[in-house]
Design a protein around this nucleic acid. Sequence first.
RNA 1: GCCUUCUUAGCUCAGUGGUAGAGCACUUCCUUGGUAAGGAAGAGGUCGUCGGUUCAAAUCCGAUAGAAGGCUCCA
Length: 640
Amino acid sequence: MRVTLPDGSVREYPKGSSSHDVALSISEGLARNVLAAKVNGKVQDANLPIDGDAEVQLLTWNDRDGKATFWHSSAHLMAEALEALYPGVKLAIGPAVENGFYYDVDFEGKHFSQDDFKKVEDKMLELARQKNEFVRQPVAKDDAMAYFTEKGDPYKIELIQGLEDGSITFYTQGGFTDLCRGPHIPNTGFIKAAKLMNVAGAYWRGDEKNKMLTRIYGVTFPKQKELEEYMTLLEEAKKRDHRKLGKELDLFTFSEKVGQGLPLWLPKGALIRERLENFLRRAQVRAGYSPVVTPHIGSKQLYVTSGHWEKYGEDSFQPIRTPDPNEEFLLKPMNCPHHCEIYKSRPRSYRDLPLRLAEFGTVYRYEQSGELHGLTRVRGFTQDDAHIFCRPDQVKEEFMKVIDLVQYVFTSLGFNDYSAQISLRDPDNGAKYIGSDDLWEKAESAIIESAREKGLPTVTEKGEAAFYGPKLDFMVKDALGRKWQLGTIQVDYNLPNRFELEYVGADNQKHRPVMIHRAPFGSMERFIAILIENTAGNFPLWLSPDQIAILPISEKYEDYANDLFLTLQESDIRGYVDLRDEKIGRKIRDAEVSKVPFMLIVGDKEQAEGKVSVRRKGQGDLGAMSVEEFTALFQKEIKV
RNA sequence: GCCUUCUUAGCUCAGUGGUAGAGCACUUCCUUGGUAAGGAAGAGGUCGUCGGUUCAAAUCCGAUAGAAGGCUCCA
């Protein structure tokens, strides 16, 4: 049989050879490192015979799929260890994930916590050292049922019930057998380092009506050193956590008294936020948006009309009462209903469209308490919201313009590592959505086409749409690799119906406009959180709360320093003069730690020559220069 | 909301049944120092809150609030 390798070379092997044999024919070293193989696009065990002519890619630790196989096998190893240590534990599922693997298990009330990690890790390594092979064995459905009925594993039985006879396989390593489609690494000996990361509750099959199981996350490596490197990497990532940096850099805080999930912006954080808002305001003026301002509350009727009351009423902040028992107001969870009413404030002509109403609108949503997370998930936040009211024939063009705007914003702030996600309806769960199928199809195809024409690489997720329409979301990762939605663009044919929005067409007839909801940042809170983590608090100069620190060598130069500060303030440069009775080394250190981009050191020499000694954070001494030279240097960096 | 863990000074943390600790930050004094921490002294906490066990609770138990990691959710 002929085997084609990824480099295009073709080799001849006896029929029934395995991927391992292929590896062996190339080099022994490679054979030792092969974890699995991709045969005609499908990942399978390295020791499984190859049926006939095939394209074969050997997978090692350096391949994504190789790692996934390694970790999946590690999940089995952990399960084996758990069974050995906790007889009678019930196993559910144990897949590989992005950074390791987990296994959901049912301890049936027995306690399991971080204190037990070491024990499990040691057991895993002990079992790994036995170099037990992962043995694949196809089983009949009845036999599979019988095995787990005997073992008393209700979760496995439920899983088998959903499988088709003939497609079921078991994998056994050592004395442990699990229901598994595979593939696996050749033997447990490949696993040289194991660490359990955390325990968490997880509902069986992800349904909160089901029993909560114990999910144990772990990670394993083929070398001890790689585990150490990974742990160091994690430590580094934790230093970038926006909650930590937000505290250290005095950007924001929370107060129990104010309430959970309600951030308080400190002066420095507020300054960043204001700069970002101004940045987007300017871009939006150029893109033809009109700023509007609407109140933080709206009558309940507004949200009955929009459908938000029916959808979220019980799970949101409850209505605000007034002395009039017939009156009820809601904190606004969305700006769109208000904007719809602005649209309706007078008759609209097709010539007025598109109408683009923009507002930094603060909204309040009663998120579940367990969901709150720093600035990325809060209960009160400000959307850089806008609603574009346009004719149906303008939808695609407008949508594409918004994609441009979002990309402009992301690029300007150095967010290059983002993914675009098209969120569509769940076709099996129509009840979740409002609006006719026809309108949904129109909206969905508008998004798909726009993204395609913009050449945007996208992933499509069914069931992730908003209840009133599909959307295109821009996702980025935080320091610890968790995905968050930032920018969003949503096409909506439904709200215009609910609010009976109209415009007079060229034919002098009434027509219904289409709405596009969009927010390039998403929310100021979340965006800034991600910005903090992306920059590790080293903001671009134009966003830095303090751009300069003037550091006099001693108090003799205070007057010179103060005068200098006034001069620079005239060029809109912000910062402070460090007048403390400290040595220059100390002042520099403190400015470096608080991440001030420019330090201006002034002493005898500078005063005499009317100059400043410039030190750039992270770079060091740039030498002495005149105030004009420094201002020019500064302005040049701002412009970039 | 659910599961697990955590909550001690402004910050980072030590202290597991016997009258509250460290470093940094803060205040005062000394020092006037040239590119990442000068020195000394002082002040600062009813150990998240409420209740229980005990002669005695930061420490053990319960409730509650908040936080962390997940799950579910996310207009």
